[in-house]
């Protein structure tokens, strides 16, 4: 029988040693990994490193303009975070869509990123924040833009001796507006059929920087470059929202799979982006009236 050896380091340095020596499979919350092992999606690993005792990997902090989320932070913790409610409200929206209360209590943001699903709910919100991932090994530390990290479904550029220790992004200001929207087959415990996140900097009614990211419509989460370009310098209006939504549809390459169909997904990218932009517009109008 194949035996699996499980390491349970208490400190980051201990973990990095193990990673360097044994190249183990990393177990955080286990909500994806254990299911994959049981279902035969991956062969039973020779070595597993369970990192859930490493306190240094937990928590959400702000230092100057930099917000840092520990890789082991659970979605439940994200949902409880006042800091993130202020600086990444769309990440909370996305976190709420993940799994069920049980899964949100175990599942971690680092795990969601490392699982590298194009449908991973936390990823599009991090794209529009232009977040960086902090990878560490005994040889040192490197930062990678989240948009450079995933190379395909289940695939990343992480070296097997590296550990994702945290996610970092620059906090927005009053001009920053966000959205996250997704479609699933049911209201909970549903993997996204399509998702979209957006961040707009709007000053005096004019859009500065705009970021839109799309989930479950390409081998990885992608930016909607065409849509972003169209937004820059414009003012939000229903017409602009529709134009941008149409552009976003051309920024993705969805496929047919067990959850949905390519044609539908492509059309829904437009619907979600339009609705997201309209929501921001209505929020701004609401603010104006107050």
């Amino acid at each position: 029988m194949t035996q699996t050896v499980i390491f349970t380091p208490k400190s980051l340095s201990e973990a990095l040693e193990v990673l360097n020596d044994k190249k183990p499979v990393v177990l955080a919350g286990g909500t994806d990994l254990l299911v994959q092992i049981k279902g035969g999606g991956i062969p039973p690993p020779r070595y597993i490193i369970a990192i859930d005792n490493i306190k240094a990997l937990k928590g959400i902090k702000k230092n100057g303009r930099k917000v840092r989320i520990g890789a082991l932070t659970t979605f439940e913790e994200i949902l409880d975070s006042e800091l993130l409610a202020k600086f990444a409200p769309h990440l909370l929206e996305a976190s709420y869509e993940i799994g069920s209360p049980q899964i949100r209590a175990r599942g971690t943001i680092g795990g969601n990123i490392m699982n590298a699903s194009p449908a991973g709910d936390s990823i599009p919100p991090l794209f529009v924040l232009e977040a960086h991932l902090i990878l560490q090994s005994i040889e040192g530390r490197r930062k990678v833009a989240i948009s450079q990290f995933h190379t395909g479904p289940g695939k990343t550029i992480r070296r097997r001796d590296e550990l994702l220790i945290g996610i970092e992004f620059e906090a927005g200001d009053k001009s920053s507006r966000y959205f996250f929207m997704r479609l699933g087959t049911r209201k909970a415990l549903a993997i996204a059929k399509v998702s979209a996140a957006g961040m707009l900097n709007i000053k005096n009614g004019h859009i500065g920087k705009a970021r839109i990211a799309l989930g479950a419509v390409a081998p990885t989460v992608v930016y909607a470059h065409g849509a972003q370009d169209l937004l820059a310098g414009k003012s939000l209006s229903p017409e602009v929202a529709l134009l941008v939504a149409n552009a976003a549809q051309n920024d993705c390459h969805p496929i047919d799979d067990i959850r949905s169909q390519a044609e539908y997904r492509q059309a829904m990218v437009g619907v979600l982006v339009e609705r997201g932009l309209m929501r921001i517009m209505n929020e701004l109008n609401g603010d104006g009236q107050r």
Partner: peptide, 10 residues
């Protein structure tokens, strides 16, 4: 995860 029955939320 792929055979979708209603949850309490539905």
């Amino acid at each position: 995860s792929t055979y979708i029955i209603p949850t309490a939320s539905d």
